[in-house]
Design a binder for these strands. Sequence first.
DNA 1: ACCTGAACACCGTTCAAGT
DNA 2: ACCTGAACACCGTTCAAGT
Lengths: 248, 248
Amino acid sequence: VDPNRDNNPGAAEALPEPPWRRARKVPTRRPLSRDAIVETALRILDRDGVDAVSMRSVAQDLGTGPASLYWHVANKEELLDLVYDRIIGEVEIPKVASPWQEQIKEFARAIRRVLHGHRDVARITLARIPTGPNAMDRMEWMLGVLRGAGIPDRAVALGADAATLFVNAFCYEEATPFRAAGKTGDIEQGAELLEQYFSSLPPERFPNFAALASVMTMGTFDERFEFGLDMLVRGLESHAPPTRSERS
Amino acid sequence: VDPNRDNNPGAAEALPEPPWRRARKVPTRRPLSRDAIVETALRILDRDGVDAVSMRSVAQDLGTGPASLYWHVANKEELLDLVYDRIIGEVEIPKVASPWQEQIKEFARAIRRVLHGHRDVARITLARIPTGPNAMDRMEWMLGVLRGAGIPDRAVALGADAATLFVNAFCYEEATPFRAAGKTGDIEQGAELLEQYFSSLPPERFPNFAALASVMTMGTFDERFEFGLDMLVRGLESHAPPTRSERS
DNA sequence: ACCTGAACACCGTTCAAGT
DNA sequence: ACCTGAACACCGTTCAAGT
């Protein structure tokens, strides 16, 4: 786009500017647009995390004031919706012909990977019902896989819902830095403090914590995710018709 | 507490004030305390929801300024931790002797009920690792039930984790008013709009949505919760040793 | 030991006015 | 049609000072 050019559809074809005429006030930036705003928000998110994305910070990065954004997006909520759908678009839909259980798991892992690639973006996924085109395509795919597995419609709808909830909630937790009793810190340090706390508990009141202390805090996020995913798929499986090997 | 009374442990036993002496400056409120602050925060939460709880609003209800709270709580995060543990204390630990599956389900339902009784408090549960005494007692109980079911330690720890995640995430979603593309509204209206949207989708791109449209949006929260809960318990069950009837 | 006022560095959104 | 400045009504937290 040439900002020195008139953008008037009804006008005669534009001619080159006469050389003696001064160029129009030099534009310090390209014009605002929904896309430019979303892109900027995403850049700030990737750089400084979700809390750093504000109407003000986005506006500042675009060289304008916060009020100017409201022509292009309804409010912050809508802006985050757009950012989110853009990120979900990065999730590749598995197209290998593997058993449906493995396809679902691989898809869940892909979502986790992509969310992880954008700082703590997972913290904005839970509140919203994803209706953007990218999210819709992926949900459509998931419904297809489950229906293809012979799971009854009701279980497909409710199961896909539960699966989405699990993945989002897990990533949400994972994206939240360790917080306990007002102290904020990183995860490594948090796990250590937590283990200390658990093993300091009076064992007569907390015999199970005492017995499980090592297992409770040892589980890495990967381990916890895979376990939850597996539980979920087992739950879904119990709604699927028996396979040939099970029937025999 | 009589505010006209000295609170000096080392002093001689207090006498009645001589009637001619003017009463001390009339105290407009009882002194601040952790408990009073938590109680006030909870009252505001119950009245106006989680977003209305701020250091400023709590302070105002107590007749003071926000800075005064910081002597008693480290920060807002810690205050919310305390409020949360207090609410979790309302969850009754099931003590009926029913099968472990039913105990877990009843417990999950109790948590949902209690969270529901306090507006959108579920929106603060996900980020925090509950380490308050009430939450710890309840987790201890849950670990006991799962271990009692013969589930191996690793599966107990990871399974309890996943179960907590599910209940909290579900209630979180349930507590969030319908939000889509920046529009905010209540849930009834949201379900309607969502159904409209789903059934307006091009069926050649979204055949599964088209087929499931009614099932997707029809599911009430109760139905979705029970389904997810059941899936979860089925997943846990698959880690338990076979029962007598299954062995035979 | 406990509380306070004032200040710092922020928010999202609206609205009349400008081009 | 698109952008702006200024204002409104908020935030959480700190810190020196008071009692």
